[in-house]
Amino acid sequence: MISLSDYLILSSIIFCIGLVGIFINRKNIITLLMCVELILAAVNTNFIAFSHFLGNEAGQIFVFFILTVAAAEVAIGLAILTLMFRNRGSIDIDITSSLKG
């Protein structure tokens, strides 16, 4: 039988893969956004698992809202990406280092 901990460990693995993806990616903001999606998916799985094993629907409600917010965030993130591409000509992360100390 699948226990709760299996799901939790799975979602933590996905979470860390997402983190690694954010860190190693340098040339592509799109990949950055996609790794954020990955992280959100892992967290959602967590919620659903808890909701199932504890019998409480609040977890699923919460996932509902997380989906909403994630969609909004992606929309705005892509709008910013478009602007950046328009102003600088590429989506390289290295060129956005003007806050350098």
Binding site: F23, I24, N25, I93, S97, L99, K100, G101
Partner: peptide
């Protein structure tokens, strides 16, 4: 330490 690169901050 402030390199300006987002992935460093992350």
């Amino acid at each position: 330490i402030q390199t300006g690169f987002v992935y460093h901050y992350a």
